[in-house]
Structure formats: C-alpha cells, structure tokens
Nucleic acid binder design. Structure first.
Lengths: 201, 201
DNA sequence: CCAGTATATATCAAACTGATATATCATGCA
DNA sequence: TGCATGATATATCAGTTTGATATATACTGG
C-alpha cells in the first residue's frame, strides 16, 4: 500500500506553531479541528516517534517540579521543509462518510414516514451542532473585536501560543475554519427542508 | 473494540433493492453513493461471506452461457430484520476529513498568499465537482419529468431494478441524495468567497 | 487476431480506530 | 486528613479499514 500518512503532516504542522506533547496535539485536534479532522493516540504517539527517528522532530523531557512527566516535541529544519513540501502538493478532495445519507438512500422502498423520521432526526442533530458552533463563533468574534481572551479560549491558547499577536492570528484561523463547519451544517439543514417538502408532495 | 461494521448494513440495504454480486455492489456505491459513502472489495467480499455464514444472505452461482462466472447474493428474512433494526438505531453524525481545511488551518502563520493559493485551488476543485453534479442532476430531473431513462442512467438501473415504477423511485432517491452533495459543495464555495474577502482585508 | 477495456472474484500488507491500561497531580468536600 | 473525581499524560493493541494488486474471462473495435 502506498500509504498517505496525513497524520505525519498534521503533527508536523501543529509543531510549527509551537513545541507540544502528544497529549497537547490530541487536545488541539479535538478542540479546534474536530469539524474537519481527527487523530487518535494510537496514531499520534507512533508518528511522533517516527518523526524523531527521521530527524524531523526532537524529543525532550520537560519535568516541571510537582508536575507530571511530559515529553515535548519540537520541529526541526528538516521537518519544516517536509511540511512545506506537503503544503504544495495536490490536496485530496474532502472525504465524507454520512450514515444518515446511507440510511435515507437505502430506505427509499420503505413507507415514506420512515424517511421523514430519519430526516427529522438528522435535522435535530445538525441543529444541535449548529447551536454549539454559533456559540463558539460568538465567543471568537467577541475575542477578536475586544482583543480580550475569555476563559473559554484561554485553554486553547495556552497550548497554541503566548503572545497577544499570535492569539489574534489563532482566533482568526479558528473562526475561519469554524465558518466552514457552519456553512456545511446550514447546507445540511437546507437540504432537510428541501427533502421534507419533496416527501410531503 | 466495539466494531461498527457499517459495511454489513450498507450491503444488506443494497440487497433489499435486488440480489446482486459483490461487483455490482461496488459499482453501485461508486456510481450512486460516492458523495457520501465508499466501500472497497477488501470489505465487500468478506462481508458477503459473513452474511451467508450468519444466515442473512444466500449465495448462488449464476452462470449465463457465454458469460463470466457470477455469484449473486440475495437477502434473507433474517437479513431484512437486521437491516430494519439498524435503521432504527441512532445514526452517527457525518464524519468529514477535509485535507484543505487542515492545510489552511496550519498555514495561518505563513504569508497570506500561501493561504490564498490554497483557497483558489480548493475553489477550482469544488467548482469542477459542482459542474459534474449539476450535469447528473439535469439528467435525473429530465428522466423523472419525461419518464424516459437515457443511456447514462440505464447502466445504474440495470443493476438497481427493472420495472418503470422502481426506476422512478430510484431516480428520485439518487436525485435527493445528489442534492445533498450539491448543497455541500455550494456551501464550500460560499466559504471560499467569504475567506478570500477576509484575507484581502 | 490482437490490444484494450469491462466484468468479476479474491487477497493482503499497511494503516487506522477506538478502547483501554497505567500513573501522576489537582480539586473539592466530608 | 483522607478520598473520590477529574484532568493530565503516555502508551498499547486487537480488530477494522484501506487501497492496491493478482487473476481470469468476455466484449469491442480496428
């Protein structure tokens, strides 16, 4: 198999922001990238080891007194080059796995109320996600406008960086990618309405 | 591990339409479900065997003279029940892996023209897909309106079913799920414009 | 009659997933 | 003070999934 190893570049990319531990990386992905990406420990830790072996990252134990053992990884020049090369390579089209679409598609021979039920559940699920995203959006917009970084965000930025200027940049990129997620959900909701109308005819 | 085995239900669901071979199933997924699902032979053939072992499908060799060996699988009562049960179970939220979003996110510290280049490429890629989808949409809409099924579609429906009434139902479900894909792409294009505007400020 | 393509089944190493095991430190509260 | 709960942190692994490839037959046009 040709292998894609996107994880490698995701990790490398995050390390260009600042040195991190495997745990930090996981949290970063879960908090900030979850609507378009995911990684898991089973992938992160071996990748980190591999990066060290390939000379793309260095591993250092950071034991702050009275704190748990931490291994912090930093990107090397070679790693930066590999990351940069990857950015210029052709980008795969988005990959989607939508279980609802599958169920809906496969139910077309069944009574219509079955399909309506599926759509209504999907609608509710997506609306719930939209509410959450909108809340995050408001927090981010306010932070950017006021140049203040409330507790909700401090956690993320503690990891991501320190300086106020970096915070602004980070807030902005979080907001921009979140907007992608919001657009995607709104599209799904619009589709639900369209289908519901089609089914009621 | 708890195992998901969605493939099992995807296969079962397609077999509720009509008996098919592994090859048929793969083609069906590639042609009609590709914008929200994918399966591969490495998953389909073992799943088919497993379904037979579990008494959820039957395997029959259909050797039409002068044609290649074919194993056609049909769903059993037990299989139908399993499929029906799955439909009622909670549905996973859509899973997305968007490499462009990842690159864009990770590039926020680099010069803005890098980001602009990424977005422009994404835009072009998505616009290309939209053109294809729109073309399929037109074919499907025309087929439904005129109750005629042109060559483009005959291939799909040869697999999917025979009667004209079933064709209409199939055309409709293909159209409805295709609409989901179109909404999704339009949302991505709208996001591109939004970001481009943000970056130029 | 031959090359290229479509049909069709099958397999496998490599990669990925999600859950779990282990351990340390912080916090509140009874 | 002790003790449950939760956050921090690293690590592993069985079970799943992926994508590529091997094999073979039939069809199609030049």
């Amino acid at each position: 198999m040709a292998s894609k190893q996107k994880t490698k570049f995701a990790v490398l990319g995050l390390l260009t922001w600042k040195p991190m531990s495997g745990y930090d990386i996981k949290k970063m992905v879960d908090v900030g990238l979850s609507h378009f990406w995911n990684e898991n420990y089973g992938q992160i830790y071996p990748t980190l080891e591999q990066l060290v072996r390939d000379g793309m990252a260095t591993k250092k134990e950071k034991r702050i007194t009275g704190q748990r053992q931490r291994f912090v990884y930093a990107i090397t020049r070679k790693g930066q080059r590999a990351f940069s090369d990857w950015l210029s390579e052709p980008t795969d089209a988005p990959i989607v796995r939508n279980e609802l679409q599958l169920k809906f598609f496969l139910s077309c021979k069944l009574p219509a109320d079955q399909s309506v039920r599926l759509i209504n559940e999907y609608r509710a699920q997506q609306q719930g996600m939209l509410d959450e995203y909108r809340q995050s959006e408001n927090v981010l917009r306010q932070a950017i406008r006021d140049e203040t970084y409330p507790d909700d965000l401090s956690r993320i930025f503690e990891i991501a960086n320190s300086s106020d200027k970096s915070r602004a940049v980070h807030c902005n990129i979080f907001l921009l990618t979140l907007r992608h997620g919001i657009h995607a959900i709104e599209a799904r909701l619009a589709w639900c309405d369209e289908v519901l109308e089609n089914l009621s005819r």
